[in-house]
Design a protein around this nucleic acid. Structure first.
Length: 200
DNA sequence: CAAGTGATTAGC
DNA sequence: CTAATCACTTGC
């Protein structure tokens, strides 16, 4: 196994930089039977906490749901949307910073058979090409909320280096309520990767 | 393109 | 308490 990403990576305060650096890293979530199910991160979105109208923690809004966003970097924030889907986020920065990065898409790397079983789709391209899809494929649900990325339930490993020129950025998706923050180019993806989510 | 699904939140 | 909304996906 490649080197596990350490706590220090998540504790930094430059959330946009971290969102970019997450591209290419390998997300690993062992199955219940202990088999590795993993994928390369190909799309992320940064949510800049108290000052970002698109963030759940905007204005330091602290509720039962957003509580884990205020924990220290390296923890997992899971929320449930549209009555059906879980969304995977990594909390970054020091305690009470309340910044998070949404993992929007991954490219399957290990345990693809398990992913196919969990997602009954014809085309492998549909396996993990969206934030709700990848949670199903990886078996991520509300029980992962607050999990520590430095422990054994879910973690990140270094992947092959990514060239800066292969990174694209643009506006975030599905945040029409965020007023002047709608246009902020805080979504990052790997150019041309077929697992990047379709919508723009 | 629109339905579906239920937790979460704000507002009374 | 109620009602609107929602960091999405799928099938029409």
């Amino acid at each position: 196994m490649m080197q596990k990403v350490s706590r220090e990576f998540y504790l930094r305060e430059n959330t946009l930089q971290i969102a970019k650096e997450l591209l290419g890293k390998i997300l690993v979530v062992p199955s219940r039977a202990g088999k590795r199910v993993a994928g390369k991160i190909v799309e992320t979105e940064a949510y800049l906490g108290a000052d970002d109208k698109a963030a759940h923690s905007y204005g330091n809004r602290r509720t039962k749901r957003t509580e884990v966003m205020f924990s220290e970097g390296g923890h997992v924030y899971i929320f449930f949307v549209y009555g059906m889907y879980f969304q995977l986020n990594f909390v970054v920065g020091p305690r009470d910073h309340a910044h998070a990065i949404l993992i929007r898409a991954i490219e399957p790397v290990e345990g693809i058979e398990i992913m196919r079983k969990r997602r009954a789709v014809k085309n492998d391209r549909e396996l993990t090409s969206g934030p709700g899809k990848l949670c199903i494929a990886l078996g991520i649900d509300g029980a992962f909320n607050g999990a520590d990325l430095c422990k054994k339930k879910i973690w990140l490993e270094e992947g092959a280096p990514i060239s800066v020129r292969s990174i694209a950025r643009g506006r975030r998706i599905g945040i029409d309520y965020a007023e002047e923050f709608v246009e902020k180019p805080w979504r990052f993806w790997l150019k041309g990767n077929e697992f990047v989510s379709r919508r723009s």
